[in-house]
Amino acid sequence: MGNNRQTLLLSDSGYDCENKTGEQMLEEAKKNLQSMAFFGLTEYQNYTQKLFLKIFSKNFKLAEEFAQSNRTFAETFINKQNDTVQIPYLEEIKRLNKLDIELYSFAKELFFKRLKDFRIV
């Protein structure tokens, strides 16, 4: 249940995914993501903040500009690993999380479309 977790959680399946294919869950997750008023991407924190403010700014004020972090916890773990060890694991992770990778690609395209629609980029 840990593989393709985002696809599972954003689909209409919840934890009852036995009667659906991965592709069905992926399509549901894409549809649900598209219907959300707002979502952001961790690696684009400044753009996420700007989009949030454009969508919800009528009654929402931030005390200060958000500080973008260019490092993640996972990145520090991977960088400590030996390249010969991490490559086989990375390929296996990609294989096991194919749906999440596709969902992320869709989310990134949708995110940048919204940035463009709100004239942020």
Rank of each mutant, 00 (worst) to 15 (best):
E27M: 10
Q24A: 02
L26E: 10
K31P: 04
Q24R: 03
S11K: 05
K20T: 11
K30Q: 07
Y15D: 00
D12C: 06
L8Q: 05
N3R: 15
T21M: 11
E27H: 13
G2M: 05
K20L: 10
Q6F: 12
E18T: 04
L26M: 08
T21E: 14
N19E: 11
E27S: 14
E23C: 03
T7Y: 14
G14H: 09
G22D: 12
L10S: 04
R5W: 15
S11R: 01
K31W: 13
G2D: 09
Y15C: 00
D16A: 12
L26T: 09
K20D: 09
E28M: 09
Q6H: 09
G14I: 01
N19K: 12
D12G: 14
L10A: 05
Q6R: 12
K30Y: 12
S13Y: 09
E23D: 13
L8T: 03
A29G: 06
L9V: 01
Q6S: 13
K30F: 10
N3Q: 05
C17G: 11
G22P: 01
R5H: 12
K31R: 14
R5A: 09
T21F: 14
E18I: 06
K20S: 08
L10C: 08
D12K: 11
R5S: 15
Y15P: 00
Q6C: 11
S13E: 13
L10D: 10
E28W: 15
C17E: 01
K20V: 05
G2R: 14
T7S: 03
K20H: 09
E18L: 13
S11L: 08
E28K: 01
R5E: 10
Q6P: 00
T7I: 01
N19T: 02
C17R: 00
E23G: 00
M25Q: 06
E28L: 01
G14N: 05
G22N: 15
K20A: 03
M25K: 03
E27R: 11
T7K: 05
S13A: 15
N4R: 08
K20C: 02
A29N: 12
N19A: 07
N4T: 13
E27A: 10
L26Q: 06
T21S: 15
T21L: 10
K31Y: 13
E18N: 06
Q24I: 07
E23P: 01
C17P: 01
E27D: 12
K31F: 08
A29Q: 08
C17Y: 12
N3Y: 13
L8A: 13
G2T: 07
G14S: 02
Q24C: 00
N19G: 04
M25W: 03
G2K: 12
C17Q: 01
N19L: 13
T21P: 12
E23F: 06
Y15A: 00
E23V: 14
L10R: 03
M25H: 04
S13V: 02
S11Q: 01
L9Y: 15
E28H: 07
E27F: 15
G22K: 06
E18S: 07
G22A: 11
T7D: 14
E28D: 13
K30S: 01
L26R: 06
N3M: 08
